[in-house]
Amino acid sequence: MTARDEMAARFAAADPDAIRDLYVQYSGPVTTVAASILRDPQLAQDAVQQTFLNAWRGAHSFDPSRDIAPWLYAIARRAAIDIHRAEQRRRTEGGHDLDVAVTPLAFDRTWEAWEVRRALGELPDDEREIVRLAHFEGRTHSEIAALTGIALGTVKSRSHRAHKRLAHALRHLVDTENVS
């Protein structure tokens, strides 16, 4: 039994301590889903908290022999959508125009975002940072080398390894052209 399997089993047994392990493992992907749907940092935080509370309250319905990620993803997505709708109602009832971003990232793409976040979480810190600088900040390898003080060749090799790991971890998305 892997550590992740053990955590899932403890969680299914409604062990409160397992929620902390679950949070360490999955707060990143849950935050990504919440932020993708809600686009409001405060609402997204509420959705993250509600996700883990709902998960714990529904732990009895989780089958520990299965991967916990899709189950938790569904709870996260539902929590974010519920908060989104409640916020829409609140604003409508208050007579204000809706100015909440409705679906900046379509709901059917939140699973892909979840999986990308999970894959990034599996990278070593130094490789993940290079991916972040390259894709999120749009920096070149030369710029990353200058910024971090790491030799250009090392930056390139870490970037290569990181992208290979990502391609492997996300092959189920890429192969089926689900990332579209």
């Binding site: 997204a44 990232l105 990308v116 999120f136 749009g138 990502l166």
Partner: peptide
């Protein structure tokens, strides 16, 4: 997706 801020939040 790798460039989306939500993936790095």
């Amino acid at each position: 997706l790798l460039g989306a801020d939500t993936v790095w939040t």
